[in-house]
Nucleic acid binder design. Structure first.
Length: 224
DNA sequence: GCATTAACAGCCG
DNA sequence: CGGCTGTTAATGC
């Protein structure tokens, strides 16, 4: 059970629900905290809750057969994910790690399925979210081989500030350059060079263990 | 050329 | 002190 104000704060979709739907969501959600670096789940876990990031930063990653770690996505506060595994009742295919102190909102499967059956607003949110993710996926396929490392970094960084997926206002993200490198598929040193270049161009501002976005529009479109 | 790993000094929290 | 940054050197595709 979660307080109404808290739910409205962390879930944009909750603000569109009817009163009855909102109550079902509220009753089905509990909050859980994770320390920096701790695992939320491993591959093969049965985490059958639909999951929202209330505060913090989560990375979705895999480890290849050769032992190489790759980050597939970073999720900031406001992100909701896992509907695939909840709907299909599958096991988790990726690792989830809290990159810093993080609080998650866990919605039990029965509440998710009830909203999925009954709420037009809830389904509208899911469709918008699928759309946004698909657009990102297509952009990835399109530009992966044409952008240089700085371009790929810029795109990955901009994704963390997708206003549909993460509707909060905060322009500053606490993340190390090493994690940004993992996210963009490059070494820490190359990520550092790319960030310096983006900072020179006035697109971002670098802090110690943090990045502030100054010009999201230009960052999204950066092509070198 | 452009990337990777290793190493290291320096700085911040 | 521990973690992160910024830089350089050696090496590889």
């Amino acid at each position: 059970m979660i307080a109404p104000d808290e739910l409205r704060r962390i879930a944009s979709w909750s603000r569109e629900l009817t009163e009855a739907e909102f109550e079902e969501a509220r009753r089905g959600i509990s909050l859980k905290s994770y320390g920096k670096g701790s695992y939320i789940c491993h591959v093969g876990d049965r985490l059958d809750s639909w999951t929202g990031v209330a505060d913090g930063l989560v990375k979705m990653s895999t480890t290849s057969k050769t032992g190489k770690a790759a980050t597939l996505a970073g999720m900031r506060a406001g992100a909701w994910f896992g509907e695939g595994t909840v709907i299909k009742g599958e096991l988790r295919r990726y690792e989830l790690v809290a990159l810093r102190e993080t609080r998650l909102a866990l919605m039990r499967r029965s509440s998710f399925l009830w909203l999925f059956e009954h709420s037009a607003a809830f389904n509208r949110f899911l469709v918008h979210q699928f759309n946004e993710r698909l657009a990102q996926f297509i952009a990835l396929a399109e530009t992966e081989r044409t952008l240089d490392s700085t371009g790929r970094l810029a795109r990955n960084l901009a994704w963390l500030f997708n206003p549909t997926l993460y509707p909060d206002q905060d322009r500053t993200l606490a993340i190390s350059q090493e994690e940004l490198g993992l996210l963009a598929g490059m070494s820490r040193q190359i990520a550092n060079q790319g960030l310096s270049k983006l900072a020179e161009l006035g697109l971002v501002e670098l802090g110690h263990g943090s990045v502030t976005i100054l010009d999201l529009d230009r960052l999204v479109r950066y092509e070198g």
